[in-house]
């Protein structure tokens, strides 16, 4: 494979558990004060033209990770490389140029659009900031963008509250496309939408990717959508990636006990398929109080002595399939714990 478009290396984001103060120092030093460890040493890569899925339940740090990649939040430690640019160090003009090439679509499209600005003003803003169009050309480009996301020219005069949820999400997507980015973070782009609308937004995103070759980082808790759209998937639990592999491997041959439970908990619309039920006990611990050893050990039914003291690292258990679990510590032990 050629060099990755985006590579995230040992990324950390800690929040102070008291107040809004930005934390400074290495993760090891900061850990003494019991910070909220939202992102706790994450490493992965996204390739060109790829859709990479990031799944996990609320509070696992996936949205924080997305924001750190775009520098909407300052990472505590670690690096994000985009092409040959170091995102974590960029400033001024170079950061602006990165913002042109990396975009984001938020879950709540309605909230992500400035309420007092028309669709036209919203779409013209990135064009203007990056000097991509002026005067007449702006209007043409706005119409082009609306067309690209399946909206009508008349929609450019609307205010966000005059649009339906689906239309708002289309405007948000159009804004992200305005600068012709190479990479878009999709932060739960379909979660706020009705099931029938979900598919149309997914279709739109797929169509955009086919025509522009953009890469996506799809952050979602909707595993069904992820299964049907992503090339590779990473599963996050309490700030760390516990499993990462090609989509089919994750869904059909999940290795990590958490991934297995997560997938088993999604109901299947077929009363004749009997699936094994895996119920996790209790709730995930707080990211301010991550268990020692393996972070999943408090809820894992395969927990061993070693898991309580030692943290498993993300290792390749099968070709291209990495998992952070001692059950797969030795390459010979291939059988999945089912």
């Amino acid at each position: 494979m050629n060099s990755p478009l985006l590579s995230v290396t040992k990324l950390f984001k800690y929040f102070s558990s008291r107040g809004q103060r930005e934390l400074r120092g290495t993760p090891e030093q900061l850990r003494q004060d019991g910070p909220v460890r939202a992102v706790d040493g994450v490493t992965f890569e996204v390739h060109s033209h790829e859709t990479f899925g990031l799944v996990g339940e609320s509070g696992c740090g996936k949205s924080t990770l997305g924001r750190c990649i775009l520098r909407l939040l300052e990472p505590t430690a670690g690096s994000v490389a985009f092409g040959d640019e170091d995102v974590t160090r960029a400033a001024g003009q170079r950061l602006r140029e990165l913002r042109r090439r990396m975009q984001i679509v938020f879950q709540d499209a309605g909230q992500s659009l400035s309420p007092m600005r028309t669709v036209r003003a919203t779409l013209a803003e990135p064009l203007r900031i990056h000097g991509l169009a002026r005067g007449e050309a702006t209007e043409t480009r706005v119409l082009q963008l609306l067309d690209q996301v399946g909206l009508e020219p008349m929609h450019r005069n609307r205010y966000p509250h005059q649009l339906s949820g689906g239309q708002q999400q289309r405007v948000a997507i159009a804004r992200a496309l305005a600068t012709e980015p190479d990479f878009i973070v999709l932060d739960e782009p379909t979660s706020a939408l009705d099931s029938s609308l979900k598919l149309t937004v997914v279709d739109l995103l797929q169509h955009v990717q086919d025509s522009t070759g953009v890469s996506y980082l799809l952050i979602s808790h909707d595993l069904t959508i992820v299964r049907h759209t992503c090339d590779r998937v990473a599963v996050m639990y309490l700030g760390a990636i516990v499993e990462i592999a090609a989509t089919a491997h994750v869904f059909d041959d999940a290795l990590h006990p958490y991934t297995q439970a997560l997938i088993a908990s999604i109901p299947v619309p077929d009363p004749f398929t009997k699936r094994e039920r895996i119920l996790l006990p209790g709730e995930p611990p707080s990211p301010a109080n991550i268990p020692s050893g393996c972070r999943f050990q408090t809820r894992c039914s395969f927990v061993m002595d070693r898991c309580r003291h030692e943290e498993p690292s993300l290792l390749e258990a099968k070709p291209g399939h990495r998992v952070a679990c001692f059950l797969y510590a030795e390459a010979e032990r291939e059988a999945a714990p089912t």
Binding site: R67, L70, L72, L95, R96, R99, R100, Q103, I104, F106, D108, Q111, S112, L113, S114, P115, E125, P126, I129, H130, A172, R175, A178, T179
Partner: peptide, 12 residues
């Protein structure tokens, strides 16, 4: 608010 975050994301 999210729209301010969105504005920052497009480079404002």
């Amino acid at each position: 608010s999210l729209y301010v975050e969105a504005a920052r994301a497009i480079g404002s």
